[in-house]
Simulated assay, not measured.
Amino acid sequence: MNDEANRRPARDPQDLARFLVSRQQAGDAEGMAALYEPDAILDIGGGQLASGRDAIRDFYARLVTVGPEFELGDQRPAIVNGDLALTSTRLADGTVTVEIAHRQGDGTWLWVIDQPSIVP
């Protein structure tokens, strides 16, 4: 599979969760990390944070080999204020993910803060 061809940029903050799930299911940790700004923060559980895209990629690389397969949940409408958006999804088990996305200069969106409920 050509991962680069499957890495469309998020033109809407609502795209990010769907892209994350599809890339995780494809085993594309690099593509998952590409959904984050270079200095983004991801809560990886246990009081730990992955800081920066490299650390996020490393976390997802481990997750795609041993973790559970992500599934799409009930994505709530994004709350957008200028160049920031609050995204969230209610998962099948009732937990909720919460993320902050930032509009880039080219109009695409990347996450800057992610507090997911799915962790290994």
Rank of each mutant, 00 (worst) to 15 (best):
R7S: 06
R7V: 06
R8L: 14
R8M: 15
R8F: 08
R8Y: 05
P9V: 15
P9Y: 12
P9T: 15
P9H: 14
R11N: 15
R11C: 13
D12C: 14
D12R: 12
D12G: 14
P13L: 14
P13N: 13
P13T: 12
D15M: 09
L16Y: 03
L16G: 11
A17K: 14
A17V: 15
R18V: 10
F19N: 12
F19P: 13
F19R: 13
L20R: 11
L20H: 04
L20G: 04
V21D: 03
S22K: 09
R23L: 11
R23Q: 10
R23M: 11
R23S: 10
Q24G: 12
Q24A: 11
Q24P: 08
Q25S: 02
Q25A: 03
Q25C: 02
Q25H: 01
A26C: 01
A26M: 06
A26S: 02
G27H: 04
G27P: 00
D28N: 02
D28W: 00
E30Q: 13
G31V: 09
G31A: 09
M32T: 07
A33Y: 08
A33W: 05
A34V: 09
L35A: 11
Y36Q: 11
E37I: 12
P38Q: 07
P38S: 08
I41Q: 06
L42A: 07
L42E: 08
I44E: 01
I44R: 02
I44G: 01
I44C: 03
G45T: 00
G47K: 00
G47Q: 01
Q48N: 01
Q48R: 01
A50H: 00
S51L: 04
S51M: 02
G52R: 00
G52C: 00
G52Q: 01
R53P: 03
A55G: 04
A55R: 02
R57Q: 11
R57T: 07
D58C: 02
F59V: 07
F59G: 05
Y60Q: 14
L63R: 13
L63H: 10
L63W: 09
T65G: 06
T65Q: 11
V66D: 09
V66W: 02
V66P: 06
V66E: 09
V66G: 12
G67C: 10
P68D: 04
E69P: 08
F70K: 10
E71H: 03
E71N: 04
E71G: 07
E71F: 01
L72R: 05
L72V: 03
G73S: 09
G73K: 03
D74H: 09
D74T: 13
Q75F: 03
R76H: 14
R76A: 14
R76C: 14
R76T: 13
P77I: 15
A78F: 04
I79K: 15
I79T: 15
I79E: 15
V80H: 05
V80I: 12
V80N: 09
N81F: 09
D83M: 12
D83G: 13
L84D: 11
L84T: 09
A85F: 06
L86K: 11
T87F: 07
T87A: 10
T87H: 07
T87N: 12
S88F: 01
S88W: 03
S88R: 07
T89F: 02
R90Q: 14
R90W: 05
L91W: 06
A92H: 02
A92D: 04
G94S: 02
T97C: 04
V98W: 07
V98H: 13
V98A: 15
E99L: 14
A101E: 05
H102N: 15
R103C: 10
Q104A: 13
G105V: 09
G105F: 09
D106V: 13
